[in-house]
Design a protein around this nucleic acid. Structure first.
Lengths: 197, 197
DNA sequence: TTTCGACCAAAAAACATAAATAGTCCAAAA
DNA sequence: TTTTGGACTATTTATGTTTTTTGGTCGAAA
């Protein structure tokens, strides 16, 4: 079945990317790892970009799935926010070889080639991430766990929460000076949560 | 007077750097702009790095001075935090040509050459920035405007506040999608402030 | 004490050349 | 008919070489 092979190829490529990073994997690497000739790949995908895209989409939905799974294990908004932050941090850690180019890549043009694609996919991810967070905050408002937010307030809160998380993440992975990163995220979530009350 | 000339050269170089960015300015550019021959510069400074350093130090103390000036215009911690954030944002804007390489530069090795120097100066700046913020928060605690923080709690709060600000800054300058950046920082400060109560 | 032109070594830019690599085509296997 | 791989091409990318720029020195002169 053609769909099976596609998935298998994507999984294979995913492993390779995680090992060597996005830019360092050639079509032949993928082909060899998938146990087929290079040109056979082109039977399933029409370009390298298409494979990249598929892999990134997969990664993203895995992260989102994990996020949702973790979030649904807790009742309170505060705990959900902590889950959200924790998953984001863990994933950034685990996949940093993949995202080294992606997350960091947003500022340096050094990554010339794949930038557009990654930007696109990343934007897509941000979008979905936003929606999840939005729902959390709205639910928290309805719960009276925090005060109800206006549309604009909601936008602001989301932006602040996400960019702050990214900023912290960045600082931590860049300088690695922090002993207990998890603690920091917990404190931040607590602070954010209380600030919205 | 030799000291005057030094200052004049620094000021000249500062303008050049702001216009063309750190990496794009040669010693001859500086010399010409300062109205002297290149080798005369070496009478006042022993290397290009020394000029860079002097300029960066100047910039930093200007920012810190402006921060302190603005902060001292308000009484409440909340307002002081807003001042702090506002100055940081304005300065990042104004000097982005200078800091494009510096702030962003911390993650990409593309800027190979000047990285060490900038890292050093930047670290130095972070240090001073931290001290200012630390004093604010302690004062706020003594005021009972926020709850008193433990040493560890203080560290965490500072890290969170600064990295969040940087994250927001980053996101704003990178994607420029936000209409009212100032609003965002105000909201964030309010949130942070309330979170510490 | 301060300035400058001439000079040098090292770094960077520009250029040319060789090696990889994405993608195509077609014949053959399944 | 669907799927595969080997031979081939057109671009990119890596490499090595030459030329130019640039940081830095020196000694003479103002």
């Amino acid at each position: 079945m053609t769909s099976d092979k596609r998935l298998q190829i994507i999984a294979t490529a995913q492993k390779l990317f995680q090992k060597k990073g996005l830019g360092m994997v050639t079509m032949e690497d993928v082909a060899k790892a998938a146990g087929m000739g290079k040109s056979s790949l082109y039977y399933y995908f029409k370009s390298k970009e298409e494979i990249f895209n598929a892999v990134l989409e997969t990664e993203i939905s895995e992260i989102l799935l994990e996020t949702i799974k973790r979030i649904s294990m807790h009742e309170s908004l505060l705990e959900k926010l902590m889950d959200f932050a924790a998953v984001k941090f863990e994933m950034a850690r685990k996949r940093k070889s993949l995202y080294r180019a992606m997350e960091a890549g947003m500022d340096a043009e050094a990554l010339s080639r794949y930038n557009d694609l990654k930007k696109e996919v990343h934007t897509n991810y941000l979008q979905k991430e936003k929606v999840v967070l939005q729902q959390l905050l709205i639910a928290g408002g309805n719960n009276n766990e925090i005060k109800k937010l206006s549309a604009a307030g909601l936008e602001q809160a989301i932006f602040i929460f996400l960019s702050a998380l990214r900023g912290m993440n960045r600082e931590i992975t860049l300088f690695g000076t922090t002993e207990q990163p998890e603690e920091l995220f917990i404190t931040f979530c607590r602070l954010f949560h209380q600030g919205l009350q």
